[in-house]
Design a protein around this nucleic acid. Structure first.
Lengths: 110, 110
DNA sequence: CACCTGATTCGATATGTGTCAACATAGACA
DNA sequence: TGTCTATGTTGACACATATCGAATCAGGTG
């Protein structure tokens, strides 16, 4: 999980000035989380799912075992990209809204 | 190096529909390339350098050895994020312009 | 309670990756 | 040609990570 204090307004556009070591460390975590094909598909499945959230059962069909899916979802949570909530039998994941904006800003688009 | 045919118009926004396995494979490569702090700093150093390009000598001060810098620059080239050109003694790197736009589009911003 | 299903954690393994020292290559210049 | 400087490549190593099967946990339901 990312500290909410440090998560929200991270870093300037890559084209504005060189990133400091600390900024690079933080920003790289987000890109790294999306740098795996399975995680990218899982993230896309959640992000594009109706209602903005999906339970694990909805998105488990990406060609790897269920423990592996769980492992990747955990990584996405630790990177601050997804949030999860258990409601009864199922666990629902949704996209952490501020993150896409932060990454977009890092890429220099507003 | 990325095939120019497949590099330019890659993938739809992550929020539009689930990525296919092939789309995820291609897109993940770009994110993965920026998923290392050293590479992110190198990329930012090039992207923010005056004239849009920088020679290796300008950006080598990121706390790792020169071979390691060379290794990371190669990775960024293979991911299609940077292009290089030798002019006399020095090798200049510049940002591949279409890439930031492609990644921005993937994040759902236009 | 027992049982079933969904989801996570654990343990093990194979593969990938970041790093450096040593070496190789490419231009510039004398 | 030889030498100096700037980059790139190789080989080796430690560490991280993606993956799976098995075990475990959490919530229903009977």
């Amino acid at each position: 999980m990312l500290d909410p204090e440090t998560a929200a307004p991270c870093c300037p556009p890559l084209t504005e000035r060189p990133l400091t070591a600390e900024e690079a460390e933080r920003t790289a975590k987000m890109f790294k989380a999306l740098g795996d094909p399975v995680r990218l598909r899982l993230f896309s499945l959640v992000a594009s799912h109706e209602g903005g959230e999906a339970c694990v059962c909805d998105i488990s069909d990406v060609g790897v075992s269920q423990p592996t899916v769980s492992h990747h979802l955990k990584k996405l949570k630790e990177a601050g990209l997804l949030a999860s909530e258990r409601r009864g039998t199922w666990v629902y994941y949704r996209v952490e809204p501020s993150v896409l904006a932060a990454m977009g800003q890092t890429l220099g688009q507003y």
